[in-house]
Design a protein around this nucleic acid. Structure first.
Lengths: 215, 215
DNA sequence: TGATAATTCGGGGTTTTCCCTAGTTTTAAG
DNA sequence: CTTAAAACTAGGGAAAACCCCGAATTATCA
């Protein structure tokens, strides 16, 4: 008997998964959690084998939850479930110790298979996710310059500049606010364009907002 | 016995709903559709009472599907189901003839209740959705000046330009794409800045993304 | 300690965006 | 049907953003 917990903020979805899994004789859903904090509280009291974890959770997101769970309960296998086949999501949560990553458009058979695979200690990915991971591996073979384009690691100062750009401040205004030269801010802008692989300010703002790069 | 069909592109979600509804004696799921076209094809062959319709469907979206279904099969009650409590979604699909609108974070009890209510010809909304509708009504009571400030009505052309700006195209590129002059696009940009109360491109993108002004 | 990244700044230039004005066409309302 | 508002079109000039070059100092991490 594999003991499970489901963490997703969409009740209907949790209900659905639970119904599906009830029909499996060797699977038992022990708990349902609707945000990241609930997951941690639940694991405090209950022991489980596999955690079905949505990447986009309120309060603590799936990545943060995954990190904490892996650190505290290394025996729990984590299967990430998400609407989005986003490389950043996939790589981040896998780096934090999740064993599998499946999309919400996978069928019941594949879901059950994924749970069994992960429970056995092996990793499992949806077909689409595998492609995404492959793409990620390709990038790792690239040199640092190219890598930087795909994995935006922006510095503290760059983040400040980015924040002010998004708040509609001009380069001159940003320079005044940060007590640095106009040219320095331009330099940071240029770095941001390169790192985030954006062509202009519009891209900078879009990518920053879409990837929640602000605090 | 209420005959149902489910239209949603996330298999896992459809499976879940189906499992939930199987436990209800008086509900029967007749069909599952994964995009808008499938819904229309299915209704050609099969007669149902209630259609559970996701707003964000591939090929034909839920709003388009709703319009067609209401026109062709006026007896079918439509219950919209969505991840998003977005006013534009809610009002649009209700205008097209949907009877109810519930979010995917509503529980199984409420789902079943919503189906019964809609089947009886009455409308049903999630609590959050009701608030959204209320907010919408409040807006209608405002004068045009206030409305413009908070709810910028941008024209068709302006929307096209805005979309392309967000996709990082320059003014020249946009002009070429739309077969109009550089100066005309600049003019549209200027109008957008005024209507959306933005100071520059960064603000344009931020406001557009935060308010879901794109299709 | 030694390489790497971050932060700072400058010159000099091109490209893009922004502002103001203004004509024509389309739409909506009286 | 007339008229006003809006949408769409555009030009010239100013401001801002972007690019390529180079370079110094300071942090950081292996």
């Amino acid at each position: 008997m594999i003991k499970l917990a489901i963490a997703d903020d969409h009740t209907m979805f949790v209900d659905g998964i639970e119904s599906i899994l009830q029909e499996e004789a060797d699977l038992e859903v022990m708990g349902r959690c609707f945000d990241g904090q609930e997951v941690l509280d639940f694991l405090d009291k209950q022991n489980i084998d596999v955690l079905l974890l949505d990447v986009n959770l309120p309060k603590l997101n799936g990545i943060q939850v995954c990190e904490k769970v892996v650190a505290t309960y290394p025996n729990i296998k984590i299967l990430a479930i998400s609407m989005f086949n986003e490389e950043s999501y996939v790589t981040e949560i896998l780096n934090k110790g999740a064993l599998g990553y499946i999309l919400k458009n996978t069928g019941r058979k594949e879901l059950v298979k994924a749970i069994h695979t992960v429970h056995g200690g092996q990793s499992y990915f949806s077909k689409e996710v595998t492609q995404t991971i492959m793409k990620g591996l390709m990038k790792q073979r690239m040199n640092t310059e190219q890598k930087a384009k795909f994995f935006p690691k922006i510095s503290k100062r760059e983040k400040q500049v980015l924040q002010l750009i998004i708040e509609e401040h001009t380069t001159q205004e940003i320079a005044d606010k940060l007590f640095i030269s106009l040219k320095t801010v331009e330099s940071h802008r240029s770095s941001l364009l390169g790192k985030m692989n954006a062509r202009n300010t519009a891209g900078l703002v879009r990518i920053a907002l879409e990837n929640n790069m602000l605090d």
